[in-house]
Design a protein around this nucleic acid. Sequence first.
DNA 1: ATGTGATTGGAAAGCGTTTTCCAATATAGA
DNA 2: TCTATATTGGAAAACGCTTTCCAATCACAT
Lengths: 331, 331
Amino acid sequence: MAAVTLAGVARHAGVSLATASRVLNGSDRRPAEEIAVRVRASALELGYIANAQAQALARSSTGLVGLVVHDISDPYFSSIARGVQHGARQFNRQVLLASTDPAENAELEAVSAFASHRTDAIILAGSRKQSTGSVLEKELQRYANNGGRVVTIGGGSGVGISLPIGNYDGALALVTELVERGLTRFAILSGPPGLKTVRDRVRGFTDALQAAGLAPLAVVADNFTHDGGFSAALACRKELEGERACLLAVNDVMALGAITALRSVGMTVPGDMMVTGFDDIPTLRDTTPGLTTVHLPLERMGETAARLALHPKSTEPEPIVGKVLLRDSTG
Amino acid sequence: MAAVTLAGVARHAGVSLATASRVLNGSDRRPAEEIAVRVRASALELGYIANAQAQALARSSTGLVGLVVHDISDPYFSSIARGVQHGARQFNRQVLLASTDPAENAELEAVSAFASHRTDAIILAGSRKQSTGSVLEKELQRYANNGGRVVTIGGGSGVGISLPIGNYDGALALVTELVERGLTRFAILSGPPGLKTVRDRVRGFTDALQAAGLAPLAVVADNFTHDGGFSAALACRKELEGERACLLAVNDVMALGAITALRSVGMTVPGDMMVTGFDDIPTLRDTTPGLTTVHLPLERMGETAARLALHPKSTEPEPIVGKVLLRDSTG
DNA sequence: ATGTGATTGGAAAGCGTTTTCCAATATAGA
DNA sequence: TCTATATTGGAAAACGCTTTCCAATCACAT
């Protein structure tokens, strides 16, 4: 049972292909109402559904927007994805998702696949190692040259529009506030140095410390994940020889991993060690103690990215500013 | 700067369209190596990227699989999505995501959009109100009739393959274990009765209670979300007049909402009230007290669903069985 | 040489739309 | 009544590929 085609509808309604197309799938020309009614009736009766592939080919616009994230099960990314989805719906676009997970060149593969599917736009969430002149950048550039729009959330891919995130400022403000509250002993739980986000935040931490005449007692880098935070915290604890300090994690999931790690060795937060995060992921509603962090409007970021990607005349947007939230994990 | 087409590559390599196609985009016929090399070189030099839309049209297969979830930022769904993504990659498919969120008929819209895009398969996660003969079911049926595959995770849509989840058995086992441990006072935090998942789990709870000669002290229904759990817990507390009992939430996010609610009125868990969940979402790693729940292999479920959807000869699968995890939230 | 069968590259017919022309008809103005 | 001008429906040419034929070439045994 082959799908009903436009030709079938046209035949059934006794009109031409052109007329049927004009009636059913928006056009600037509106056939006479009498005919339109007949065509619509036929379409309904036969259960016609336009073939988006064929339309894409003819119109050279697919109605698709590609979203690249590292791990869709990470609350940071799934919140952004939700926003992107919302934004896309407002423009009548469907979201093509790529969760690039562990595979090293998965990100490149995803971009290639999106380019192949001729998505109208590509949104990159979570800045990747961005060696200028990288294969990824070349691919994105080619995509952009062919008319595709590129939006990068928080971290220039070097191509297209970038939605700037106040990573540096947020990190700076966080540590500044903590110092004002009298904390002096800090250690940094960092992530892969290849990520721009990581570099920006770490720089914010250290600059704030420096401004206060302080320096981190330790800097440990690990994966940008829960497990990364877990092992980084343990390593850090060794370096600090168990002495109380404030662990500045470079994002919330790492911070949560760190807290779990500290608990697993019998330490309490904030009693024996303090911890901070970054992002304010929704998960934090349910964790105790409340995690001190920098709030980012994740969902709105996704929606904004979608708008930037899909709105014809969108310009460089206002930067997203983070808001420091002091909670119990820092006493 | 228009995109490079296959015709362009063929011309540049001095071969026909047919030959170029055979060399570049898999075919059962392999042109002579000498020619193949020339074509590949041209493709590389010109930066050719096949137009997936055109291929889809010609092959009548899009390489797309549609995933419908209620809320991609809910850890339950994002874990499943991760699995689907993995599974899809193994079959070289891209994932089209629809997070249907608040809009009432968004689910139907999503299915229509997927049908229009001629996705090779549609995966429905999170059973929706499934009035047999509903518009949604009709739409799915039509999709299936046109050769699309439909997989429903945990809750028959009445169309296509269903991946059965041991909701009833898991709920039954959970309560049975709790009763064995001496608990006698229970209340149920239920979700929208339209959801099959909800009905199955609640039935499991009540059947287990009945078997032990018990009955729930209260049954409160609310949204299937964190907020739903929050307000349901408060309502429940009223009905119980603050007396200690075990709140059986119908899923983890509701349970977490419930715990937050209880805390907000100064009650402790499990001291003043006990709480259980269902699903074992990854979030639970970081919450205290540990939530007693029924573990489901969410990511694997997604992967299995993808396999079922994409593997040519897949049959009704083994049901997924839940595993009871007793943790601190029940003492 | 000759016939047989396998192998190869290419021409052309789709796939299901949109959209540009064109011709035909209707409308208005004189 | 007749031309000038809109308005309308339809034929056909794209869009970028795959795939079915077809004809040409080749190897090989006769």
